[in-house]
Design a protein around this nucleic acid. Structure first.
Length: 219
DNA sequence: CATTTGATGTTCT
DNA sequence: GAACATCAAATGC
């Protein structure tokens, strides 16, 4: 409202929603290919924010010790078990939400955690939702931060990522040369599996523990 | 700069 | 009772 202008920069719409078949594939492949796609979120207050996915983690299913699917079908994991292409949002550490895209067929129990995004539209709203944050890169450089900034809560768990309040759309492809693979973060079981994918040099990726800095994982 | 600690409440053992 | 796919502030070099 303050500075509205730049007619050439205005875009009326983003890419198309990712097709249902995109999600029904090996979870680590979906995690890799979600990099560069666009999340458009209509929060419960009706405000729309848009951001590019720059960091993901794959959780493979009941045979992955770190995946919530090991607990079996419970009230919490209902939406994790499919069908693919829907949101799985869970509450963690008594304070935060984490947003996942469900992969694989119904009953399998696999998903991709969206760990960090790069704001595209509505960054002013994100700043209002995260009043203590001073640097813009800190608005969304973590899974809990992303949900706070975009207004994602458990209210949207189980909704379609093609038709629902959160839509994941085609974006700009990220070449292999810009993709970094590392172990997963913040877990204790099977933490060494190389299932974390991030866009190299993006300022909005989450902090990497220094113990990972010298690991020989290559793009 | 790196590392530790407190907040907070649901879920599962 | 312990663990938890976290974050922000505080503390230590």
């Amino acid at each position: 409202m303050t500075r509205d202008a730049a007619p050439t920069a205005r875009r009326s719409r983003w890419g198309s929603p990712l097709p249902a078949r995109f999600y029904d594939r090996p979870t680590e492949l979906v995690a890799r290919e979600l990099l560069g796609t666009v999340v458009q979120c209509t929060a419960t207050d009706g405000v729309i924010t848009t951001a590019r996915i720059v960091e993901t983690e794959a959780y493979l299913g009941p045979h992955d010790p770190a995946c919530h699917a090991v607990a079996g079908l419970t009230p919490r994991t209902t939406h994790l078990f499919g069908p693919p292409g829907r949101a799985y949002v869970y509450f963690i550490y008594g304070m935060y939400w984490c947003f996942n895209a469900v992969t694989r067929e119904r009953g399998h129990g696999a998903a991709v955690l969206i760990r960090a995004v790069h704001p595209i539209d509505g960054i002013d709203v994100m700043r209002c939702r995260r009043p203590r944050v001073t640097r813009d890169r800190d608005l969304t450089n973590g899974p809990g931060k992303t949900c706070l900034a975009m207004g994602i809560t458990g209210a949207v768990s189980g909704t379609s990522l093609r038709h629902g309040p959160i839509i994941i759309r085609t974006g700009t492809a990220v070449p292999d040369s810009a993709v970094v693979v590392t172990p997963r973060i913040g877990i204790t079981r099977a933490a060494d599996w190389p299932m974390r994918f991030l866009v190299r040099d993006d300022p909005c990726v989450s902090a990497t523990p220094s113990s990972f800095a010298r690991m020989p994982y290559l793009p």
